[in-house]
Structure formats: structure tokens, C-alpha cells
């Protein structure tokens, strides 16, 4: 299992468990965007701790994934960026625009809680 997508409350937790190649990355992107609609989620957390590198393609994929999620009404937080990957991304001159980041899952959930104000209660 390269990627696991679990639902927790209003959020989806997507963990990347292995190094992904480009086509796997693309399939992950499609699957996640689809799940957002299916599960009616308001937020997505993507855990990239197990990803070996975040190169320009992976970063672009995460960036467009966040854009698509936002169009589907969900905010995206990327967590688990290792110090090595952070160093490399900065050296490469790369950032993931429009994507929120947090250190780990716990802080990621806090960020999502702040970003997604609770929906008004349904009318009686």
C-alpha cells in the first residue's frame, strides 16, 4: 500500500508510505480529489514524511492538488516535511504555493481547525 487515505471527522488523512514515482503521484492526486467530494470533507492532511524526495514534479503535484481541493471546498495542509527535504527545497528554489504546512499530524489538525470555521448548524 503506497498511500492510505483515511477519514477522520470532517477531514481526510492521506499518508504517503513509500517513495512515489510520477505516475503514482498523479494517481494519488486524482484519487484524493475524488475522495474529497465523496466524503464531503472540509480539510485534507497530506503526510509526506515517508517520501524520499520532494522534487519539482512532486511539489507541483502537491500544489495543484491543493488548488483542486480548494475548488472542491477543502483546505490542504502538508505535514511531515523532513529537515533534509526542507533544506533541499529551499536550495532548489522551490516552494509549494497556496499550501499550508505544519510540523506533524497534531499541528496539522490544529491548522485545519483554524482554517475551516465550523459550518452553521443545519436549519431545523
Amino acid at each position: 500500500m503506497l498511500v492510505s487515505i483515511l477519514r477522520q471527522g470532517d477531514y481526510l488523512l492521506a499518508s504517503i508510505n513509500a517513495a512515489l514515482d510520477d505516475s503514482e503521484m498523479r494517481r494519488f492526486q486524482e484519487a484524493l480529489v475524488e475522495r474529497i467530494g465523496d466524503e464531503r470533507c472540509r480539510g485534507v492532511i497530506i503526510d509526506v514524511a515517508a517520501l524520499d524526495v520532494l522534487d519539482s514534479y512532486a511539489a507541483a503535484t502537491l500544489g495543484s492538488l491543493a488548488d483542486m481541493a480548494r475548488l472542491r471546498g477543502a483546505e490542504t495542509v502538508v505535514v511531515g516535511v523532513s529537515p533534509e527535504i526542507a533544506f533541499t527545497m529551499v536550495q532548489l528554489g522551490m516552494s509549494i504555493p497556496h499550501v499550508h504546512t505544519a510540523l506533524d499530524l497534531e499541528q496539522g489538525l490544529q491548522v485545519l481547525g483554524r482554517l475551516t470555521s465550523p459550518l452553521p448548524p443545519p436549519r431545523p
Binding site: D22, V53, P83, E84
Partner: peptide, 19 residues
């Protein structure tokens, strides 16, 4: 480990261009 990631990233970029 950082240099390992840096090198792996660079290899990833040039190898992708080949594919």
C-alpha cells in the same frame, strides 16, 4: 543525510527529463 536528499533530488530531476 541532507546531502543524500539533495543528491537524490537532483538525480530525480535529470532522470525525469530522460523519461
Amino acid at each position: 543525510a541532507t546531502d543524500g536528499t539533495v543528491i537524490a533530488t537532483a538525480i530525480s530531476e535529470v532522470t525525469r527529463n530522460i523519461v
